[in-house]
Amino acid sequence: MTPSTHTRPSRKAPFAAALLSFVCLAALAACGGQPAGDADDSAPRATRTTRFTENGVTVTLSVSDWHASQGTLTAVFTPEAKGFHLYSTDLPPTGIEGVGRPTAMAVNGVLKAQGRLTAGAEVRSISVPGVDTPVPVYPDGPVTTTLPVRADADGDATLLLGYASCSTQDGCTIPVSDRPVHLRVTGDGPAFDAP
């Protein structure tokens, strides 16, 4: 009879792995850290950028060039589907003959606008069936807008965003009006609440 080639698994390996894990966690705790997955979710987090998607458009917001209580708020409006455009910031609040809604960003609270909302895209006019007046829109795809702002003091502020996206072939999404996004202004400048 030949000796068996089967060997029993070592019981030392699982014990060593468990001991190593315990030592790593103890060292992390001693340094004031926390293991991944155990982050303290009760602490408020803030960020200089945030985004949300609503009614066919993703809006990415950021704060830049902050100095001496002044800076720039940027909003990039990106239609989710190809072939969709956004309307001019100069469109009347109720559109033209009820068609369209302006791309808009306003601030309130401790933030104040230092000028007008501007867009980094050329406006073009389109004809809409049943509407006598041409409608001003941006080319299909994303539109970047900027708003210069200043802070009167530390405290809370709110951005109010509006937009609608349309396609000449597929129609329009439901307009968004006065969609709030909250910020907290400190000595370091404005920061968005983490989503």
Rank of each mutant, 00 (worst) to 15 (best):
residue 56 G to K: 07
residue 106 A to V: 06
residue 114 Q to D: 15
residue 141 G to C: 06
residue 185 V to I: 08
residue 107 V to P: 03
residue 6 H to I: 14
residue 182 H to P: 01
residue 152 D to M: 12
residue 42 S to E: 09
residue 35 P to M: 11
residue 34 Q to L: 09
residue 108 N to T: 14
residue 89 T to Q: 13
residue 169 Q to P: 00
residue 162 G to I: 03
residue 44 P to A: 10
residue 49 T to F: 07
residue 9 P to C: 03
residue 4 S to W: 10
residue 123 V to P: 00
residue 129 P to Y: 02
residue 103 T to G: 02
residue 187 G to P: 01
residue 194 A to V: 13
residue 17 A to W: 05
residue 142 P to E: 04
residue 163 Y to L: 08
residue 13 A to H: 12
residue 82 K to E: 13
residue 76 V to T: 15
residue 58 T to D: 09
residue 131 V to W: 03
residue 169 Q to V: 11
residue 13 A to S: 14
residue 50 T to R: 05
residue 107 V to S: 07
residue 62 S to Y: 06
residue 78 T to M: 02
residue 110 V to A: 07
residue 147 L to M: 09
residue 69 S to H: 12
residue 19 L to Q: 07
residue 153 A to L: 03
residue 54 E to Y: 14
residue 43 A to T: 15
residue 168 T to I: 10
residue 102 P to I: 12
residue 195 P to L: 01
residue 152 D to H: 03
residue 111 L to F: 06
residue 14 P to V: 05
residue 100 G to P: 09
residue 135 V to C: 04
residue 177 S to C: 00
residue 61 L to D: 06
residue 97 E to R: 12
residue 42 S to C: 00
residue 49 T to Y: 05
residue 137 V to M: 06
residue 53 T to H: 06
residue 96 I to Y: 12
residue 102 P to T: 13
residue 115 G to A: 04
residue 121 A to H: 02
residue 164 A to P: 00
residue 115 G to P: 05
residue 97 E to H: 12
residue 4 S to V: 15
residue 49 T to V: 05
residue 46 A to I: 08
residue 118 T to P: 13
residue 48 R to T: 08
residue 168 T to H: 08
residue 139 P to Q: 11
residue 37 G to D: 00
residue 175 P to W: 00
residue 22 F to A: 14
residue 187 G to A: 04
residue 132 D to F: 08
residue 14 P to C: 12
residue 122 E to G: 07
residue 113 A to C: 02
residue 106 A to H: 13
residue 177 S to K: 13
residue 101 R to M: 10
residue 174 I to M: 14
residue 78 T to K: 02
residue 81 A to D: 15
residue 110 V to F: 06
residue 83 G to E: 06
residue 12 K to C: 13
residue 49 T to A: 11
residue 95 G to T: 10
residue 144 T to E: 13
residue 104 A to D: 05
residue 143 V to P: 13
residue 65 D to Y: 08
